[in-house]
Design a binder for these strands. Structure first.
Lengths: 413, 413
DNA sequence: ACCTTATGTTGATGTGTAAAACATATAGCA
DNA sequence: TGCTATATGTTTTACACATCAACATAAGGT
């Protein structure tokens, strides 16, 4: 029955500007979430007056973040038709994603559409400096385009631990980065605001906003990659970052007391017991064929004997996965756990069985049952997630800086 | 760098009332948190204008939630002295705490002081109806007093799983309750708004607001009781409830693959491996002497041999406790983990050792180090926590219902 | 064609905070 | 003891924003 926050989060007082900002934010947020909304619907959902909505929408149109289009042709309602508001495709976020053998740069519109993707292959694992230089060069190449757009900022995908507050990469094992202020470097190199986050956290954001987790209050995303298992937590639409933005490291929870040593220094971690490499190996797949894993695995198991070695690996991994999922369900009580990467395969082998195994490990009660699901966004998940991270700032204050890049300022919060 | 919420939490638009409400809430929140604040300080901290603060404080004085007192005598500042605002001791919350052999009723003032505690001993484990009747009778006895006060509502402490949204007790193993709408029953019986929560969650709130966790952003509270181990999570001052308010069940995370079966249906749960009873038994203490556990244990170990059986039990329990804490630290990345109940003893035996063990299990990085601590509120922790749950609603909207009990309405949200 | 319904548009109104001008109370100092 | 500087409370005025009412507009229903 009680719901309020025990301690007030914000400390500053409100003035009339705040009202305007909040309402502008609310309207842009609805447009962004729904894709296309009539002014009438905005009026109903926000409870604001018709005239207020008109003023707010006009301001957002002037800011070029939304477009007001002609009323939907397919009316069946009496009364004056209401104009439809859609997010502008000219408000965009740049996404930068350094990997072991490449740096990928993307351009994503406010509506969620991925406009461009450029993959820059590297000879070797890029250093932070190299990754930033590559990204800056590609962005400079797009500069004409970007200046025509409203480029809100850059979303930086980090395969490792990032301090959310300042974008410093604490450790990215795959890339060999450690304590690198990559966000700041990229910001200085391009002039755009940079928001950085862990890849799994971005997956959680993406699935929560535009994937299978739309409208779900409490969501956990678990991604199985070549390097290990990462996780992200969404609570009431906001990412849970923890003290330093390192929350969600479910890959390093213990699932087996006498387990193998993990690179983190511990042993028996989820990601030492549940890994992609043994699965690929058992199925005679090369690492670069990992996209086929799901299909090949399901096909293989469909005619495999009971003592099939692949089946044995899968069953053992599923057993330990269920342990970790049970822990997560008990600690966080999520509505939904979403699987990405090779964990999708482990889930798809027997969705009902895994669900039952997890539920058996959680404190029961029929209405607390957690649901499991595969990720719904495919290859664009990180593009979408990183863009949403950037757009979150825009939506929080649509009138702030109207898109013009500002040279070399470090952080605004 | 980016911080905004990806999806907007509230859906309603803001008007001038909202601004007023928010600022009123902000000021009352500061007064509540700090205990005594000068108007000048409120001006500085909120960024609001002097005249605005004056108006807001005046309204809170009229609502009788705060008292404006004479300026502090010990000035050393030049300039006109600023009046000091303190929370009114006449704004109170009632706390109801059913246990196996009693129902405890308390009265807590907005400033955090426990004004009264009444313990009603029962012959046997009370049913929900009995607990409600006892509470209602005691509250009726205090009615004269309560009517003189501003009684904001009732905070209901539940030793079990409660749905935060409606106060339905899903399961309270100790009490044998299952799917009981206790909050609604108590509300109907007394006319006061009732907010119910799990005991460990209330401990987390209490330690976060008035205990060792003041000012800590991400906090986990772990309580070790006779029945098991419960946990509560605080994130940026708000409790994390999960989908149904069942989050924090750290007692049922797995710490030992071949562990003993747990009453939850699983096996090797934290609370089957780490329990109070074996400790009491080994030290020849009766259950009712559990308050002495900490002292007796430390005393015993101070002159115990290396192969002392108590030491063996303690070491084994500490090992499994470290596993669970490592999982929690990896998943939630808290700044602070607070121990209550007998877990305080396990921690106190060797604080540095346990801290090191937990840190060894978490993804490293010097700035992510989690801190451990004993609870700071002692026996009043649940009184304070439940009262804070009630006050949270008041602080969120100080001008709402001005304290008069309303007959038999179920829920307001 | 006319009415009903739903919505956009325009101008007047009310309300909360900010800003400015004034009042007051303290410390420091001669 | 009085003067000055400083900080803060108090009062008045101004401004910005949402609301409301009245009017305008565009559809469906008959």
């Amino acid at each position: 029955m009680a719901t309020g926050s025990v301690v007030l989060s914000a400390m500053r007082g409100s003035n009339l500007d705040m009202v305007r900002r909040r309402n502008l934010s609310l309207v842009l947020g609805r447009v962004h979430e729904l894709g296309a909304v009539s002014r009438a619907r905005l009026t109903k959902e926000t409870g604001l007056n018709r005239s207020t909505i008109a003023a707010l929408v006009n301001e957002l149109v002037l800011l070029e973040h939304v477009i007001e289009t002609d009323p939907d042709q397919a009316h069946q309602q009496v009364g004056r038709p209401s104009p439809v508001i859609v997010p502008s495709d000219r408000t965009v976020a740049v996404v930068v994603h350094p990997e072991m053998d490449s740096v990928e740069i993307g351009l994503v519109a406010l509506g969620g559409r991925v406009l461009r993707r450029v993959r820059f292959d590297t000879e070797r694992v890029p250093s932070p400096r190299e990754a930033v230089n590559i990204a800056a060069a590609v962005i400079d190449g797009m500069r004409g385009e970007l200046d025509a757009f409203h480029t809100v900022g850059i979303g930086l995908v980090i395969p490792g631990l990032v301090r959310a507050s300042n974008g410093v990469v604490a450790v990215a094992p795959h890339l060999g980065w450690r304590d690198e202020p990559v966000a700041e470097m990229l910001q200085d190199a391009t002039g755009y605001r940079v928001a950085a986050a862990n890849d799994a956290s971005l997956g959680a954001i993406a699935e929560s906003v535009r994937g299978v987790g739309r409208g779900v209050g409490q969501l956990v995303y678990l991604n199985g990659g070549a390097s290990g298992i990462g996780g992200g937590i969404m609570s009431s639409g906001s990412p849970i970052g923890g003290a330093s933005g390192f929350a969600g490291e479910i890959g390093h929870t213990l699932v087996r007391n006498d387990g193998d040593p993990c690179h983190c220094g511990s042993a028996g971690c989820l990601e030492t017991e549940v890994a992609r490499a043994p699965l690929l190996e058992a199925l005679d797949l090369a690492p670069h064929e990992s996209e086929r894993l799901n299909d090949v695995l399901l096909e293989h198991l469909s005619h495999a004997s009971a003592d099939d070695p692949v089946r044995a690996i899968v069953n053992r991994q599923r057993k330990y996965l269920a342990v970790a999922l049970g822990n997560v369900a008990n600690i966080l009580n999520p509505n939904l756990i979403v699987f990405g990467g090779f964990l999708q395969s482990l889930y798809a082998v027997d969705p009902v069985g895994l669900t039952a195994a997890v539920r058996a490990r959680t404190m029961s009660g029929p209405d607390r049952d957690v649901t499991l699901a595969q990720a719904g966004l495919g290859a664009s998940i990180l593009m979408v997630g990183a863009a949403e991270l950037v757009f979150a700032d825009l939506i929080a204050d649509p009138a702030r800086s109207s898109g013009t890049p500002r040279a070399s300022r470090t952080a605004a919060l």
